[in-house]
């Protein structure tokens, strides 16, 4: 069976507006990403600021226009789909935004917020009180919350309202942009547990966008690592954590300080900062920061190479996956 969502060689390009005298150019925020999301599974996209992960998610949700490539949902092409037709699909493909309170209108009650999807989709004739109650129960909030306003609830509760609203119409694919950013660790788990439970109950496929590897580790089946608009590694989550193939993945894993002062630090330190996507480095785009850089890396572009159950974009994964290189 083919995947629920198939993304093939997608580019998202933005026009760059200069000043009066400067020329107008373009920047490629996403450059040739391909990935599959299976029904009922979770795919985690990990990357740091500016890696293009949110842009990719928004392109899937039809909020950005993909300049090239194809985005197939159940075999239907989403790229260049007219807005009127996309609107129908928004029952099945829903997006949960990053800022939980900011994405809720301060003037509407929680009830109107979580039942808004019914009205938008022309199902406003349903018993909205019952629906609101059902949705609040589903995300573990008391039914009385229906009458409250967003400023009367906490950040964690606002996230739950966001989940209720996204899942109101029983979608097939949920795109969650940083679902735990800004949450305290003591309630971060609640959010992830809730998503996992609802996935099991509803058979939902989830695309999670995050910069936090700890989030990905527990909730996703497959993980893709993005750097400068490209996937640099992809694989089954456990595989990628146990045996990363790309040095950037290793650096991300190592940059996650453990809550233990005596933890054995396998620190792979990156020098410098990510280059500007306006001036992409030649060859492997990671070579300017790679601690294992070789002469070839600055000239040849590495291709997407299958390895085990995953794939990566590195010329020399064997150089640093050798144990002595990692231990030193």
């Amino acid at each position: 069976m083919s995947a629920l969502l198939q993304i093939r060689d997608v580019f998202v390009r933005f026009r760059l507006r200069g000043g009066i005298f400067s020329s107008v150019g373009t920047i490629d925020a996403v450059t040739g990403v391909s990935l599959d999301i299976e029904e009922g599974k979770t795919y985690g996209i990990v990357g740091e600021s500016g890696s293009g992960k949110t842009t990719l998610a928004r392109a899937v949700a039809g909020l950005h226009h993909a300049s090239e490539g194809s985005i197939l949902y159940r075999g239907q092409e989403l790229r260049d789909l007219p807005e009127a037709e996309f609107r129908e699909l928004r029952r099945e493909i829903v997006m949960m935004f990053q800022d939980p309170i900011g994405s809720l209108s301060p003037r509407l009650t929680i009830k109107s917020l979580i039942t808004e999807p019914f009205r938008i989709q022309g199902m406003g004739d349903r018993d909205l009180d019952t629906e609101a109650k059902r949705l609040l129960t589903m995300v573990g909030l008391p039914a009385e919350f229906a009458a409250r306003y967003p400023y009367q609830i906490s950040g964690g509760q606002a996230r739950r309202v966001g989940v209720a609203r996204a899942l109101a119409l029983d979608p097939k694919l949920l795109i969650a942009d940083e679902p735990t950013a800004g949450l305290d660790v003591s309630i971060q788990g609640e959010m992830l547990n809730l998503l996992a439970r609802l996935q099991d109950e509803m058979g939902l496929a989830i695309m999670i966008i995050t910069h936090n590897l700890n989030v990905v580790r527990h909730i996703t089946d497959t993980v893709g690592i993005m750097y400068m608009g490209k996937l640099v590694e992809e694989g089954p989550t456990e595989e990628v954590f146990a045996r990363p193939q790309h040095p950037y993945t290793l650096a991300l894993l190592a940059a996650n300080p453990e809550p233990d002062p005596d933890a054995q630090l396998m620190r792979v330190e990156l020098s410098g900062e990510p280059p500007s996507i306006l001036r992409r480095p030649k060859g492997c785009e990671f070579h300017t920061r790679c601690p294992f850089v070789q002469p070839r890396c600055s000239t040849d572009v590495p291709v997407w190479t299958a390895a085990g159950e995953g794939a990566h974009r590195c010329h020399f994964p064997e150089i640093w996956t050798r144990e002595e290189a990692v231990a030193s």
Binding site: S186, Q188, G189, N193, V215, R217, H218, N256, P259, D260
Partner: peptide, 16 residues
């Protein structure tokens, strides 16, 4: 609760 602590994959994370 710190997921950095939890090495084994779980779909039921501890919370307070």
């Amino acid at each position: 609760c710190d997921p950095g602590h939890i090495k084994v994959r779980t779909r039921n994370l501890p919370t307070i």
